[in-house]
Design a binder for these strands. Structure first.
Lengths: 192, 192
DNA sequence: CACATTCTGTACCGATCAGTTCAGAACCGA
DNA sequence: TCGGTTCTGAACTGATCGGTACAGAATGTG
């Protein structure tokens, strides 16, 4: 047939995630992306069409990965309260382990491109709703196993807890010590 | 002496806030800033030195304004619980009233320039701590007037509530209906 | 009115941006 | 080994970026 492709589609997407995650959408030039993914610009445009299209595809991949990771947490043998805590702790641990202390790519996308690009906004909204659903499940589990107050509406509380987790990530971008942020996480759980 | 300045320093800062708030730091070109503020580039650079310096000054002005607004809320005759709710409601109301549904400029700055520019990061951290302090005061007031649970450490809980308010702003960037976000706010207050 | 001083409009700098073009390299089936 | 197809490196496009240079316009003081 013809010449074979010199790069792996998914590997490029992983590299793009890394690049966009480190330097945001606007801050990542197509040249940066090519360098990180080790492919030429013509290949990038032949394969993905545009920077935005690559971003969208990378974001979808990132979200799918996060979704999978959340699913695995759900399978662990934890009380509802422990599970809720574990979800938040996982998020913060990833951020503080990261050298650049990067917040979730989807969260950054909400701020940077949310309300500007309808298609991406929808993707981000769906992702947020999915996160909500996981937390609602954790809270309901806690209400059944007696580790979480039963006087709370699970869905709305899940939204609130989700918001708190997002806010803690924002705070981690400017906080000097991890302990103060972790105290915020403990305080969220203490409210349940 | 010499020729008089044809623009007002503070008016330029207000315009810069508007511009940076609408299009972020990276997304606002110096040309955009000149157009919004109605001054020439040479004047901009003579007066502020650089785009970054203008951003910092505008951010400080924005933060000072928010600080003032929070102070006024504190003077209102509200229970601690009402005050806590009022702080969150004010934030969300401003965002949803805004046509671009812009989140707090300082919050966006945390994501965009936090952890990248040490001086700005410090400014943002101080601002966040100030917001925490207001909420801690509100929570303590509520614990004294009987409208908020007394088994909570006020400072840590304030951090958690602050995080939730920030997260609700992030969510508002991608949410389709205001009511669902407002339900999240109600759920936060219900936890107290 | 004349001067020194300060401000501003315009044109410009090199760098970088997203995206295109195209010649030639690499591959597979024949 | 050949030919048709696909992929890729490098050079290029016009636009835009942050920042600078400088001539000339506008001012208060003498």
């Amino acid at each position: 047939m013809a010449r074979t492709r010199a790069f792996d589609h998914d590997a490029v997407l992983d590299a793009a995630i890394e690049q966009f995650w480190s330097s945001s959408y606007r801050g990542s030039s197509t040249e940066d992306l090519c360098a990180t993914a080790n492919l030429s610009r013509s290949s990038l445009y032949n394969t993905f069409g545009s920077k935005r299209a690559l971003y969208l595809e990378a974001l979808l991949n990132y979200i799918a990965g996060k979704r999978r990771a959340r699913g695995e947490l759900l399978d662990r043998d934890l009380t509802g309260r422990e599970l809720t805590y574990a979800v938040g702790a996982a998020v913060l641990d990833e951020q503080w382990t990261d050298p650049g202390r990067r917040a979730c790519l989807a969260l950054a996308a909400c701020i940077e491109v949310g309300q500007q690009d309808p298609e991406i906004t929808t993707v981000l909204e769906t992702n947020a709703a999915d996160f909500d659903a996981v937390l609602a499940l954790a809270i309901r589990r806690g209400q059944q196993d007696g580790t979480i107050r039963t006087d709370l509406p699970a869905e709305a509380t899940a939204r609130a807890v989700h918001a708190a987790f997002d806010g803690l990530q924002v705070r981690s971008r400017v906080a000097t010590d991890r302990a103060s942020v972790e105290a915020g996480l403990d305080a969220v759980i203490a409210l349940l």
